[in-house]
């Protein structure tokens, strides 16, 4: 089965969304940005996205709640949780919830790109 090429970025912060899109662009990865978990879910169906990069704290549904929703309907979709929170609880919840990676802002570009490359196998 061909891996769908589009990476989803979910972050309520416009500057961060744009920055992540540009980082993927320089590596010729295509992406689609969403300003909330809700707008992502509206566009999501199994097989549409290659992976998801999500922020945690957002107005409305949080990134951790989004993770649960994704795992329920597309368990194999790799999710990277990106946050500026440094508490271990959030990390634990993310990893327990099935996140493939947990990155703390500001993120190292190589870390993110390495994870994405690993998903592509």
């Amino acid at each position: 089965m061909a891996v769908p090429p589009v990476i989803a970025i979910v972050d309520d912060d416009a500057e961060m969304r744009a920055a992540l899109c540009d980082l993927l662009l320089v590596e010729a990865l295509s992406c689609r940005a969403f300003e909330s978990a809700e707008t992502f879910l509206a566009a999501h169906a199994p097989g549409v996205f290659a992976s998801v990069i999500t922020d945690v704290r957002m107005p409305g549904m949080t990134g951790l709640e989004l993770l649960v929703r994704i795992k329920r309907c597309e368990p194999d979709l790799p999710v990277i949780v990106v946050t500026s929170a440094v508490d271990t609880q959030t990390r634990q919840k993310a990893m327990d919830g099935g996140a493939r990676a947990f990155l703390v802002k500001p993120i190292r570009d190589a870390d993110l790109l390495d994870h994405l490359a690993a998903f592509r196998g």
Binding site: E15, M16, A18, A19, D22, L25, I107, D109
Partner: peptide, 11 residues
């Protein structure tokens, strides 16, 4: 904004 700065600089 600091996170955006770092990522934009990396890019």
């Amino acid at each position: 904004p600091l996170a955006a700065i770092v990522t934009n600089a990396d890019t």
